[in-house]
Design a protein around this nucleic acid. Sequence first.
DNA 1: CTGTTAGCGCGTTCAA
DNA 2: TTGAACGCGCTAACAG
Lengths: 338, 338
Amino acid sequence: MSKINIKYLAKELNLSISTVSRALRDSHEISGETKKRVFDLAKRLNYQPNSNASGLRGQKTKMIAVVIPDMVNDFFSLVISGIEKVTQEKGYHILLHFTHGDHELEVSFINTLASGRVDGVLLSMSSEDNDSHHLAELNSSGIPLVLFDRVSECVSNVKVTSDNHESSVLATHHLIEAGCKKIAYLQVHKNIPVGKVRMNGYLEALQQYSAQKVPLVLECTNDNDETFELIQKMLVAEKPDGVFASVEKLAVVCYRVCEKMRLKIPDDIKIISFSNLHTAALLNPSLTTITQPAFDIGETAAKELFNIINKKNRTLAGDNNNVVLQSRLIKRRSTARY
Amino acid sequence: MSKINIKYLAKELNLSISTVSRALRDSHEISGETKKRVFDLAKRLNYQPNSNASGLRGQKTKMIAVVIPDMVNDFFSLVISGIEKVTQEKGYHILLHFTHGDHELEVSFINTLASGRVDGVLLSMSSEDNDSHHLAELNSSGIPLVLFDRVSECVSNVKVTSDNHESSVLATHHLIEAGCKKIAYLQVHKNIPVGKVRMNGYLEALQQYSAQKVPLVLECTNDNDETFELIQKMLVAEKPDGVFASVEKLAVVCYRVCEKMRLKIPDDIKIISFSNLHTAALLNPSLTTITQPAFDIGETAAKELFNIINKKNRTLAGDNNNVVLQSRLIKRRSTARY
DNA sequence: CTGTTAGCGCGTTCAA
DNA sequence: TTGAACGCGCTAACAG
């Protein structure tokens, strides 16, 4: 730890501590001459203010906490990139924490934050059906909180999400428009809440736009080999001409199954899938994807948070405090692009 | 910011501030009776110690900084996951910062850290050929530093890397063993240092194991469409039977070119590529990949850092302070796995 | 324009 | 076993 602090600078310059402090903050009540002497020495000695001290004094840490489940797919990487763009501009730093989907860990970390370690919190909840008592406590401590992606309706904070229901309707509709008569839905492991929302979109679109009377929902598992078998059996038995994968992992497995069964995409069967920007680029270009605006979600959530921190009026969130961003439908890419 | 501090607890319990402080730290000079009263109230009021205050007092922040270029591919996501595993265990937090490949940003942020904002720093440098004056200064401030992935030889800190040279030899050798007589190397944009190291491995393997006299190196660009054209021209003109892509992006483009040219993989042409665990799973299974141990790099680097922070003997780094982890060669995956 | 003083919350002397 | 007092480095109120 560097020993170069204001006291040291003051002694070197034969000035008082407060004069140096004011000079460094470019106060108008310090002469240009003195300011210059202080700045020069500070620069020469590479003086850096102690953030713990100024944080303690001024109740500002220039840090926000980002609490997410994990980074096993690139959704959250993109979100963080979006957040970082904003924090960079504001001169803030990111305190990163993973909950690994563990509600207890989330509670414990959120509680820690209530002590003023950060100026604000961005949270994607570990699970959506659990209690939000800890969030109420964070709120009562006065630290701004914005939720994103995995949110809870039990709490009145600003929430930034993408419209999974609408996107699913869109995706299903796209397959119907492309001529699919029998569309299967690949459901991710059932206790992931977003899976239900997306399935409802699929069901609604079928009712509204398709002649297909019975929905065809396949419950997949976390085991890829098992899922491979399940999908293969389903394709053989049901012979759908369209598949809607609720997460990209399932689309990839489905793609491999088609490969094995010598099914041509998109001639024999059409596949559409939720995906993220980076990984979507790696999928076979014949797969149409619904891409969540992950970067935008991060950027928007961070901006909303800073609006609250700086006590500006909230610009994007309406009365219900919800900002809903639209997903993007990316149709077949050209051969050259990927 | 929560108003529940030691002073408040002391008043509530009719104890002095220092008694409460000692009780909370489980000091042996406090009676069990008093401790229990303090603990109970602290728990009931959800007391959380102020990290700025204890940081200022004790020169310990329970935070480490992670400084990386960005998260545009999932290499660094995996690294961070590895780091987080260790910080979680140690009860530490991660302060995340992106340099976006900008050396000035790196210098400025490293300087900031010298003031004691964190207990240690993990750094992957923005560029490897630049000066490392700022690192010397960080070292002299006494804050532990461990470099990983993109390191500088100019500095004597512990470094954790994977062996790109050896991996490239391995990858090239794999193609040769598989019967390739003419192997092309797809070089990433030239001023990315790792590209040179990998190319040297390719060149060395050719000399050592192959009858191929002239290396076939294609300089690619950052523009995907342009690269697509370049690869196509090369494949038409040179007709290689093997391709070694220095980064996975190039492998994907090459794969698309082969698709367009109706070249069968691996019958007509074999492709091997550097890749990362997550994205490798999405690539066509007929691509063999060399996978960097990203998670391990993060985990190892973090462990080394904590060894220094806790002043233990360093276990992994030898005399030259280098820890080199091996990449993994992942051959053709079964159809079912991905 | 500059200096003196107080206090942010905590942990650790020293004193009782 | 407990309490009073000091200082970590910084900023702001008050004085001159």
